[in-house]
Simulated scan of single mutants.
Amino acid sequence: MATVVVTTDYLTPGDQVHGALTRAGHEVRYAPAGGARDSKEAKALFDDCAAAIVASEPITADMLSGAGHLRVVARSGVGYDSIDTATATELGIWVCNTPGVNHHAVAEMTFALMLDVARQLSAVTSGVQAGRWPRQAGTELRGAVLGVIGYGPSGRAVADLGRAFGMTVLVTTAHNQPDREGVEFVDLDTLCVRADYISLHTKANADNESLIDRRRLAMMKPTAALINTARGSLIDESALIDALDAGQLAAAALDVVAVEPLPPTSALLGRDDIIITSHLAGQTQQARTRAGLAAADNVIAVLDGRRPPSPVNEPAVTAAHS
C-alpha cells in the first residue's frame, strides 16, 4: 500500500477518484491548497507519499528534493508549467498530465467570454442590477475574424466553434498541420494584424513568456479583443493595460492572469474594458471527473510499476525513486 496525497480542491473523500485509488490498494491523504502555502508546509507536503495528484499550485525543486519516496506527480489538468519538471526528471519522478479531458470545456468558455465582449453582457448585467436599463448595441461574431494561437485540442475546438459561428478562422502554430477546410494558417504577426478576436491556446514555457507584448499589441485593430484561457504568462499585463488606455485594442477577457489569485491591488481590476474570471475555463463537472480519473490512472500505473498513460517527462532511474 502506498500513500497518495491529493491537493486538487475539487477532489474529495468518497468520490470516483478516491474509489479508484483505494480499490488499487492505496491510502489517500487530502491537502487541498487554500492559497499559497508557507515554505514549511510546502516542503512537508509530500512527506511519506509515493504519489501526488495536484492542481496548478507551484511544485518546486525544494518540495521535490525533500520527497524521498515520491515516484509520480500527476496533474489533474493539461498544463504542467507549475511543476519543476527538470528537477523531477533528475530525481526519477514521473510527471504526468491529463490531455484531452477539458478542451471542449475550454472552447465553450472561450466563446462565452467572446460573446460577453461582443454583446457587452457583463456591463449590461451590472447596469440592470444597478437599476438602469442599458440598451447599447453589441456586435455579431458572424463575419468576424477569429485568430487562434496554438492548435492543440483546445485550439482546434475553438476553431471548429468559430467556423460554426460563421467566422473567418486564422491559426498560428509552431507545429506543421495538414490543410484544413475553413482554417487559414498564418504567422503570429499576421494574425495580430487581421483578427477581430485573438484567443490564446498555446502552452506556456520559457520561450513564449510575454508572447503578446507591446509590439504585438500595437499591431492589433483598435476594435479587437484579446481572449486568454491558456496561461497568464503569455501576456505582458502592463503592456496590455497601456494598450487599452491608448486605444490600441478595445477589450480583453482573461480567465488566467500572471499571479493567481489576483491581488486586490491589481491594475487589471476595476476596468470596463477587461473581463476577468477565476481560471475556470476547464472546470466543468464533466471535465473535472475526466481529469481526476485520468490523473488517478497515471498514479496507479506508476505505483504498479507500469509506464503511465500520459507522461510529460522521461525520468532518470535513481536509487531513491526506483
Rank of each mutant, 00 (worst) to 15 (best):
R214M: 00
A253R: 15
Q248K: 13
T172L: 03
W133L: 14
M167N: 05
D304A: 11
A67M: 11
D84N: 01
A137L: 14
D213V: 05
M219S: 04
A316Y: 13
M1S: 10
S76Q: 11
L64R: 00
A230C: 07
G270D: 02
Y151K: 06
R163F: 03
P153L: 11
E108S: 00
T110L: 08
R271G: 04
A195V: 06
M109F: 07
D187A: 12
T229V: 15
G77A: 01
R290W: 05
G182Y: 04
A250R: 12
V78S: 07
E57T: 10
Q248T: 07
A20V: 06
F111C: 05
A296C: 02
V124R: 07
D207N: 09
L269V: 10
R307F: 13
T3N: 06
L191H: 08
V5P: 06
A61I: 02
A137G: 15
A61P: 04
N102W: 15
Q286W: 03
G79T: 13
R231Q: 03
T85W: 04
R231P: 14
I83D: 00
G152K: 14
A33K: 04
L188V: 05
T22N: 03
D189F: 02
G292N: 15
G34T: 14
P222N: 10
G143R: 02
T98M: 13
P178M: 07
V117P: 07
Q129K: 13
Y151N: 03
A251I: 08
M167T: 06
G150K: 09
L188H: 11
S210V: 00
N102E: 08
V169D: 09
E260Y: 08
Y30E: 05
L269A: 02
A112L: 15
R180G: 14
L293V: 11
S278V: 10
G282C: 00
L141D: 11
A88P: 12
D272R: 10
